[in-house]
Design a protein around this nucleic acid. Structure first.
Ligand SMILES: [Zn+2]
Ligand SMILES: [Zn+2]
Ligand SMILES: [Zn+2]
Ligand SMILES: [Zn+2]
Lengths: 138, 138
DNA sequence: CATAGTATCTCTAGCGACTAGAGGTTCAAG
DNA sequence: CTTGAACCTCTAGTCGCTAGAGATACTATG
């Protein structure tokens, strides 16, 4: 049996975050001591580890909820899990694409001025004011 | 003179967002009609276009505030502008790096299961439960 | 067994950058 | 002058936490 602090140390999830996961229904409420403190078992530790890993991979709380629900219904097909992971992959790829476009523009903008002029002639400020100087849409 | 709706159409910034920018001090409060409605001039349009473009490039409200302040003080050096743009570039690059690592893991995870099994044997769920299957840190 | 110090409890509010909705007023066209 | 769209302010909600206040519980030492 672990206290919330012990669970926190083992999973590297902060204590208030663990409590937050409980309030939003991601973690089921654990047993309590007589003095009302939470006590977790091995299953609780594993569930939180799962959540942590999924969060680290960028899955939303909602997506993780669906994945956990799936785990709790072993009779269902795992299609939903693959779908969620695939959606997450597309999401990440879309973000990368956008960021790469931004990277290009920002490189041009940041390199366009040495910082030794005045705002009026600054290429950085001019580029922000005028999208026509951009090579791409964003 | 433009109404807020007209300004919204021209800049593609939503009306509530324009008002929000005013409350946080990004936009200076414009003139009002007798009936208390906002009326913007060309300068207002240009300022909002600047903000919109900077937001599209991922700059924070705070960063944009600094940039606008710089524009309003033509005697200062533009060093701060270059610094802010460079910081934004590093930020974007850091994000890309993280996302690329995630992309690799997610590709492995999503391709690991066709979705035709049960949760117990699902590679997707197993991978989320166990970081040891990952090729990288995140 | 008493005490001290740490950990835990609940509750509320704040972050960033909006977005949505309620309930009321003003504008512009016909 | 009437209609209806656009506008006004204000509050609350979004996501995923994070911080703080004030109170209580646990644990280790004397
Ligand atoms: Zn410059
Ligand atoms: Zn641009
Ligand atoms: Zn599967
Ligand atoms: Zn991993």
């Amino acid at each position: 049996m672990f206290s919330i602090g012990e669970l926190s140390r083992r999973t590297k999830v902060k204590v208030p975050t663990i409590r937050y996961y409980e309030t939003v229904g991601l973690l089921t409420a654990p047993e309590r001591t007589e003095g009302n403190q939470r006590r977790y078992d091995q299953a609780g530790l594993e569930r939180l580890s799962f959540i942590k890993h999924a969060r680290d991979l960028g899955f939303s709380i909602e997506a993780i909820s669906s994945l956990i629900e799936l785990q709790d219904h072993p009779d269902r097909s795992c299609q939903a899990a693959t779908d969620i992971a695939t959606a997450q992959l597309s999401d990440v790829r879309a973000k990368i694409k956008k960021l790469r476009a931004l990277e290009k523009e920002l490189l041009r903008i940041a390199n366009g001025c040495d910082g030794d002029g005045v705002p009026e002639d600054c290429y950085v400020l001019a580029s922000l004011a005028n999208h026509d100087l951009c090579q791409q849409e964003h």
